Computed example of a mutant assay.
Amino acid sequence: MSLRIVVDDLTGAPTRALIAAHLAGMHENSPPESVHALDLGALTAPGITVWSAWRDDDLVGIGALAELDGDGDGDGDGARRGELKSMRVDDRFRGTGAGRALLRHIIAHARARGIQSLWLETGSEDAFIPARALYASEGFVECGPFAAYAPDPLSTFMTRTL
């Protein structure tokens, strides 16, 4: 699948709709205290870059990189650790390789920014098996909670050295 992946300013209706669907899906599969997905406002915070993947005029997916340390301006200078956030592929494009392409794009940008490790939190329930399998196949391994996360039986934490 040929994708065009761009930094997204989060103003377009398709992106906003996919973020809303992502949040709704997280709340369908996890109790509120175990939902760590970022809403639209949080995704616009300094130190977070959001990408969207497109096939022609169709939004295929989104993903974000948040600096865990550094100066918070989003350029990665000084940031040694980054967190993957809001990875979501539109249901119409699941199983097409779009999620892997977006993940690899974010990894490449993190590496180019000098980030040395990536971290993520995803669900531990069956609905999240495909996500955990994708991350594991790209070199992520399970770890304990990081940053401000607390232990949660419904969360799986993963990391990867770049």
Rank of each mutant, 00 (worst) to 15 (best):
A64Y: 05
T122D: 05
F157Y: 14
R81L: 01
V6L: 10
M26R: 14
D57H: 12
A136H: 03
R4K: 14
A66E: 12
D58G: 04
G25F: 11
E121I: 01
D73Q: 11
E83Q: 13
R94Y: 02
R88N: 02
R81A: 08
D91S: 13
L38C: 10
T122C: 09
A45Q: 12
A42Q: 15
T161E: 15
Y135C: 04
A20C: 00
L23Y: 02
G61E: 07
K85S: 05
S155R: 09
W51E: 11
A110V: 00
A108I: 02
G74P: 02
A37F: 03
G139M: 10
P151V: 12
N29S: 13
P145C: 00
A21N: 13
D69G: 02
L23M: 13
G123V: 06
G72L: 05
V60K: 13
S124F: 00
A136P: 00
G63M: 11
L59I: 09
A150E: 15
P14E: 14
W119R: 15
I107K: 07
S117H: 06
S117G: 13
G41D: 12
G97I: 04
P14Q: 13
H109W: 04
R100K: 15
L120P: 03
A98W: 02
D90C: 00
W119G: 05
R104G: 06
T161W: 01
A112Y: 06
F140W: 08
E28A: 14
R100Y: 03
P153L: 08
I19Y: 01
L38G: 09
G82R: 06
A127I: 08
A150G: 05
A24P: 00
S86M: 05
R111H: 13
F128S: 09
L120M: 14
R100N: 03
L43D: 00
A136G: 02
T161H: 07
T44D: 04
R160F: 01
G70M: 03
G41K: 10
S86E: 01
F146H: 13
A13L: 13
R104A: 03
Y149E: 03
F146T: 07
